[in-house]
Design a protein around this nucleic acid. Sequence first.
DNA 1: GACCTACTTGACACTAAATATCAATAGAAT
DNA 2: ATTCTATTGATATTTAGTGTCAAGTAGGTC
Lengths: 136, 136
Amino acid sequence: MTDSTERLEDTGYRLTAPRRAVLDAIASINRPFTIEELSEGLPNIGRATVFRTVKLLQELDIVCRVPLEDGSVRYERSRSGRHHHHLICSVCGSVTEFSDPSLDAAIEQNATSASFELESHSAELYGRCDSCRTTS
Amino acid sequence: MTDSTERLEDTGYRLTAPRRAVLDAIASINRPFTIEELSEGLPNIGRATVFRTVKLLQELDIVCRVPLEDGSVRYERSRSGRHHHHLICSVCGSVTEFSDPSLDAAIEQNATSASFELESHSAELYGRCDSCRTTS
DNA sequence: GACCTACTTGACACTAAATATCAATAGAAT
DNA sequence: ATTCTATTGATATTTAGTGTCAAGTAGGTC
């Protein structure tokens, strides 16, 4: 979170008390969260500000958007702060990041053969994580 | 759409007038649509029915959900009716389906190495389609 | 063809997620 | 300390979708 505040400043954004509060709250949550959940834990911060801050943090790759299989959305602090994909457990809801250059290459290959100029992409994997798989 | 009605019947769903109307409307739209747009073109059909029917058609792989980069969602008649991925043009909004076993394999490989039991996955490619790329 | 019954519909209320507005507030540069 | 502009909070509004339930109808049966 310290380097998150730095990243905010470096990008020209103001380091305000509400933004610090949102960053702290995100740092202390250890699971994917909804904005509502985050907002409930921050009764002194306006709901709109929480939405705005999370949107900002997404742009800075500090937080990432996690689309669930049912169409709902959660957010999570990005571990890597860089491009990655997700393994999303349908049992416990845990989200694991991974990167794979060969997966990215396969995606680029498909774009190229369709004469499509790729700007970005997403890949989400849904299933059961190791511990939920072995525990059930 | 004829085989869509067959697929409805085969699965035990009733072939009702509203469902036919929704199927016809989808067949006549040649671009990704929102439920609102679809519903506007069907003033005699209840909004809830349009939502319900599109949800049903998704389950039957007749229609597919297309998540856009900004988090909004559109729907499109599935050409293949089977598992596939999307090339989504950020200029004209066109959506092209593609399948690639080697892409699927790369995804499965990642799940396996994380001891993750893969149930499903999605991959969306965003950028500029061939005609928008060459026209601009 | 009439009948039955479960599936489906339509109207409407409601929820959830997010954005728009705008006066008031407060970073941070000087 | 002052100033200027980004940011905030409160609230209204939008968008996308679901829940409820009485009324309607598809399609199998006699």
